[in-house]
Design a protein around this nucleic acid. Structure first.
Lengths: 244, 244
DNA sequence: AAGTGGTCTAGACCACATC
DNA sequence: ATGTGGTCTAGACCACTTT
């Protein structure tokens, strides 16, 4: 790595190191929760200085792909009971995080992806998707209606995992069962009238204002892995965002 | 700065440097748009290494308090036509930024702050607030209703600045007229039925779903400077958020 | 040519966790 | 005692901007 690079695809050394680490994480060489080699070892392996490896790791940490602990080491991000998914923005009225809790009735359907779904998920024509529906509870009362859309080929049998527990997080399942790490989401919010199918299960009137959240979630490689729409009765909770 | 600090209020050198720079910006020693001394000069002044100053500046840049340009220098963040406020999350239906445009009819009232307003703004009992009301246009049609609440003592005559132009940004006014830099916002979103006062000016039916955004904005010193509630008709626009 | 921030290196010492 | 990441330093060279 000592020769000078100048080509059009030039990038700083630490970014090249970051890219290599990213590829190994994406390929499952290190799995969520695994410890990475120390800065010194990585520096030796890549023939760069420890400071260069450090800068690569700091960027990965800023993107929540790894977690660093002084005295312990650097670990691939793992979600679970201890480490909740950080990109979940619903809060109770008194600004507490919402504990994940569902009513246990998960339904699903398998079908051909619509053109819009294919575009958003990057799927070829004729691909199948799984659409999963469930209801989230806030303080015991049904308040949110989830519709989750996944590529069937990427997550075969996904819906079965959701039926096993009433508080499973879909991103934890993706991680533990399919080795797919959710990294980033884009969300679009609007206010819409409650539809009959929501009124039925959420104990609201048809037409009552609901917060609608359209979300696309991306994996380590930057490709979309999930589409989700959530309809929320915001009587008892809010969507929180801190922006700087 | 060579003696070892160990006390309960210990903080790394680069954070102390950052704090000093922050204080100077907050005090108006450097104003928005001003260039800061180079890393080398700051390092000399503070008797630390250039790398330590760099780390302080990088943190300030990450928080959008300064902007760095290779070959030119480091500048205090300035908002305006060129550099729009980055924490404005409403997008048109086709994912474009909304140009700021108001209908020009700004109304306001001055009154005693309510207990809730005092708590949110950190005001003493008996303090006055100004409440400003205006309507934002999306593609020419009125779509958003703003209620802006400010401490009267901090921003005397603020409402007059809003009447001068139909596309002024309140944070630009705070910066240019009062030397107050808005740095961070917290927002809470919910869906609510349109009230009569909104229906009247936004051309919607009473009861129609509206996106309600409650926002608190903080200044350089971390103290709240503005309360705002925005009611949005999300027919033609969405609230966008990218979360990682 | 001179000055700026961006990258890279090498080495020192510290704080923290584990053995 | 050892190993980890966190801080701090000093110096080199590069890329970009302005004079």
């Amino acid at each position: 790595m000592s020769e000078t690079l100048q080509g059009p695809d030039f990038s700083p050394l630490y970014r090249q190191v970051k890219e290599l680490l990213l590829q190994r994480i994406a390929a499952g060489h290190w799995k969520p929760g695994d410890i990475l080699p120390s800065e010194t070892k990585l520096a030796g392996e890549f023939n760069v200085s420890q400071g260069t490896v450090r800068k690569a790791l700091e960027e990965l940490a800023a993107e929540h792909l790894v977690v660093r602990h002084q005295g312990k080491g650097t670990f691939v991000t793992a979600r679970g009971a201890e480490q909740p998914v950080h990109f979940f923005s619903m809060m109770t009225a008194d600004h507490q995080r919402l504990p994940p809790r569902f009513n246990g009735k998960v339904t699903h359907e398998v079908g051909l992806a619509t053109p819009a779904e294919r575009r958003s998920l990057g799927l070829p024509e004729g691909a199948d998707v799984v659409r999963i529906f469930r209801v989230r509870l806030v303080g015991g009362t049904p308040s949110m209606f989830d519709e989750i859309i996944l590529a069937r080929a990427q997550f075969p049998g996904f819906e079965q995992h959701l039926n096993r527990d009433d508080q499973v997080n879909t991103y934890v399942i993706m991680e533990k069962e399919y080795g797919v790490l959710a990294v980033r989401s884009e969300e679009w919010l609007s206010a819409v009238p409650a539809e009959p199918r929501h009124a039925e299960v959420l104990n609201v009137e048809v037409g009552q204002p609901m917060l609608k959240i359209d979300r696309v979630t991306y994996g380590v490689d930057g490709k979309p892995i999930e589409l989700r729409t959530v309809w929320v009765d915001t009587t008892d909770c809010h969507y929180y965002n801190s922006v700087s």
